[in-house]
Design a protein around this nucleic acid. Structure first.
Lengths: 340, 340
DNA sequence: ATGAAAGCGCTAACAG
DNA sequence: CTGTTAGCGCTTTCAT
């Protein structure tokens, strides 16, 4: 029936032949807003359907030099914050006609190995979540004309747009709350030492504690990892004088801390000790945890980061923007309320 | 310095000119195992580095008609089982030189709208997780020569390879456990009515109950959704004669059930009532939950699905395979142990 | 081992 | 509105 030999997939030329039009006419029939007569288009579409033709987007990318692909680099997918944001990002990009090319790097790995891969694949833009960026990386991308936007990470001194939560200010609020709840021995559980989120939250926490006249916090490192956060919490509990309030650099670690507490200590969270996180992941609101936290609205952050990407795509050369998405403290049962 | 006008990205021709070789020579220099003299290659690589050249994989895809892209369609990313598997799949595919093009569909949406997108993007293969597949979909992909592998879903009667856990047999084991623990009023919480996982687990559960001489279970539907699972659990608890053992079609819903129980009932899980899930997501092992469950090893499933994809890519036309990955029952505290 | 030539499937520019 | 002509940047014969 169809005049296509063996297993080849039909091309625009095949369709053109069947429809009795030129090959570019087929192209126009499949291009939104191209100038083509309705009847011609119908003829083409009919022939296309008959042959099972679908435009080859790879070929289109080559000619237009736009792939409609956005690279998304993400790790720590076991922290529910990230898949939640990823799903939103993918959905919003899809609405804008872009697809997500996923790059997952092993946790804590440098972003450099991505560079080559990303640039060779000719993504139109790059979203870096839970990853830092080196100046060489930023430089090369900018030279290649690939906009880069960081989410939930910041790299000081580089002209890269970012979308973050209120890391520092949120942590200040948390310190205040801890002080006003009457705590005397604060502790901080860091994530990864070189992660800007962890650093900023720690900085804000210190500032807030000092302002409230509290001592410098005890300090452990949980590496944003569940098991290592449990160990870190255990270490705190084993201290001669354990803390009475622990601020964890994210919710995921705070949940680990809470459970270690339940399991291995008689201290009652929200009474004898306060556990506070950062992010407001869905599980934080689960009744078993009722984790007090400072929210980072992932859906909003997803919207903002995509908006930023599209903006940079439309207006190349626009200066980088640091977008701080507002959040708020959520008092739940894992921390002592402030005194009246 | 370099002879490239304005902001264009350097091409193989630019490199060829600088290196004083032909353009195909540049191609060979970047192709593993191509026949090229070492010194020529060095000249090329030097020139390439100087210009900041990177091969354009889109152009390569067009000529080779292989994109080295694998589509991964996934939804329900809020169920930790899926991101965990996604991360593994992406990592293993990356090792094999493939990238992941992500397709996220709204939960419960039909897979049909994906078809067009997937086929136009010329992915080399497609992995469908948490999605069913229609015969037209399978048919079109096979016609286009795009291998499709389903993970954690099965579609009866279609010649599509699948990788699943032991849904039916696992559920039989669960029924036996419930019987041997002395329970008398079992209940089943379904996921989505049209999901094969939910159906198979229900079928196995029924079979196991019958074999053990227990009555048909009460039945509610949680739609694989946290909040709807809570409502479903509430409905069960509000019954004049509530169940004494609830098997939930997956862990995520079982966690919801457990928490609703804690919050809104005096029944103690593991004593007055048993709650059992399916998957063994990381949170199931968390001390707060200690959820009894039947495991689906997501890392192994990821390996198998990628292996299947690569196999079909290497040997097109090989018959479809149904791969059932073994799991086992994990007795934890949320369910009553069998009596001695 | 290397270069010349052709072509992958499409869009863009230009006549008509 | 439509066809003709040229590429996009690469890989692939095929000579040499």
């Amino acid at each position: 029936m169809s005049s296509i030999k063996n297993g080849r997939r039909p091309t625009a030329r095949d369709v053109a032949r069947v429809a009795g039009v030129s090959q570019p006419a087929v192209s126009r029939a499949f291009t939104e807003g191209a100038s083509i007569a309705v009847e011609t288009r119908d003829k083409v579409l009919r022939a296309a359907k008959e042959l099972g033709y679908r435009p080859n987007l790879i070929a289109r990318s080559l000619t237009t030099s736009r792939s409609r692909l956005v690279g998304v680099a993400m790790s720590y997918l076991e922290n529910p914050f990230y898949p939640a944001m990823l799903e939103r990002i993918a959905a919003i990009l899809a609405d804008a006609g872009y697809k997500v090319l996923l790059f997952t790097s092993p946790p804590g790995a440098p972003c450099e190995p991505l560079l080559e891969d990303v640039l060779r694949n000719r993504v139109d833009a790059l979203i870096l979540a839970s990853a830092s960026i080196t100046s060489r990386f930023a430089e090369e991308c900018s030279r290649a004309g690939v906009p880069v936007v960081l989410v939930n990470r910041r790299t000081p001194g580089h002209r890269t747009s970012t979308v973050t939560g209120m890391n520092e200010d949120g942590a200040v609020v948390i310190a205040e709350r801890i002080a006003r709840a009457g705590h005397r021995r604060p502790a901080f559980m860091a994530g990864l030492e070189n992660a800007s989120t962890s650093q900023e939250r720690e900085r804000g926490f210190l500032r807030g504690l000092v302002a409230a006249g509290l001592p410098e916090p005890l300090r452990v490192v949980g590496h944003f990892d569940f098991e290592r956060a449990r160990s870190a919490m255990r270490a705190l509990l084993a201290l001669p004088k354990p803390p009475d309030a622990v601020f964890c650099a994210n919710d995921y670690m705070a949940l680990a801390a809470l459970q270690t507490l339940h399991e291995e200590s008689a201290l009652r969270p929200g009474r004898d000790i306060s556990i506070i996180g950062f992010d407001d992941i869905p599980a934080a609101a689960w009744p078993s945890f009722a984790l007090s936290t400072f929210s980072q609205p992932y859906a909003l952050m997803a919207e903002r980061v995509v908006a930023r990407v599209l903006d940079q795509l439309r207006h190349p050369g626009r200066p980088a923007v640091e977008d701080v998405v507002p959040g708020s403290f959520l008092q739940r049962r894992s921390s002592r309320p402030v005194r009246a």
